[in-house]
Design a protein around this nucleic acid. Sequence first.
DNA 1: GTCTATATCAGGATAGAC
DNA 2: GTCTATCCTGATATAGAC
Lengths: 210, 210
Amino acid sequence: MQATAEQRGKGRIRLANEADILHAAERVFARAGYAGATMADIAACAGIPKSNLHYYFGTKRDIYRAVLTHILALWLAPADSIREDNDPRTALAGYIDAKMALTASHPDASRVFACEVLHGAAEIGDILRTDLRLLVERKAAVIERWIAEGRMAPVDPRHLFFTIWAATQTYADFETQVCAVLDLPALESADISRAAAHVKTLLLRGCGLA
Amino acid sequence: MQATAEQRGKGRIRLANEADILHAAERVFARAGYAGATMADIAACAGIPKSNLHYYFGTKRDIYRAVLTHILALWLAPADSIREDNDPRTALAGYIDAKMALTASHPDASRVFACEVLHGAAEIGDILRTDLRLLVERKAAVIERWIAEGRMAPVDPRHLFFTIWAATQTYADFETQVCAVLDLPALESADISRAAAHVKTLLLRGCGLA
DNA sequence: GTCTATATCAGGATAGAC
DNA sequence: GTCTATCCTGATATAGAC
């Protein structure tokens, strides 16, 4: 007797099709960017007739925004491990692990996000300036207290976030470059594990948490 | 009596126009990506009639490749400071400074490169697998010797490059995000200096070079 | 409520003028 | 050798059929 989405006015077919379309769109946008992606590509990838995309979502931009909304929810979650009552080493290691796991499990989401920000974040700039900024401010305050208490080396906490994001997401966003240098056809989970270990070793030691 | 480009068959007008087009193209590709950039945008930005782009370069793709070629030359140069006869701290600090300076002086170049790699490096994949890979192998060997001699902490040298590239280029590629978090309208040179100091502090300490 | 045929438009490329 | 008018493909979006 739960209030299912269907009861709120969305049919089973619509729900399934919307999910398929969003999933396909993430793949296509990740590979070609917003402008490079075509409705035909997305439709083919989703196994749905081209013009149905407009029926379900209206415009290409609407699909793109829906994909980004989904990604942002994923992206803001992992910072939970950075809490005052955790010790700095556990907290930061947990955060890096969570970001690496996300990067490994959702590389296309990472790429869509990266491409959006790279081109000026026209769609999500507001969210970056509000939700993301607020999140970082709160977590930076925690890190600043740890530093004041002498529990880790003095590091600019906001820039620390930039470095952690960059160092982890590079394995999704620039996978091509990583594979070229390492002479690998693609990154396997063992490679990601090695990368995570490297990032933790380097950055934790950098924070005086070795 | 020097062998000028003009004497090799390129007129003054052509040289000036080609330079203007490449400069404009870098801006436009950085903002919109390959697919999102239009010949009309590039022409407007260069102050040249649209169809002249085809006269000077043939196709849009030819312009893109010319831009990428120029960027790659810039990108591979800074690794020179990593030499056996330098001490590790100076060498790595110099490399990070050089990468940050490049990022600050050529943010659009960084973005075009990032976007190309993000989407699979169809145009420059070969160069990444040859020139870049070779460069990293040579420099990684130097770093491995420093580690073997106990002159720095054990760090995977290839992954160290990934982290340095990511940590520095994020200030160009994801400037929008950095500005959103720091509540700045744009990154000034003072902000870049702070960022460079942060990256050096964090990564050098991470390499046991504090 | 779901799917298809069609209109409209923008953008890259070419043929030809100066 | 340099520049301009024009073509034509291909992509989004809509109107209408089932």
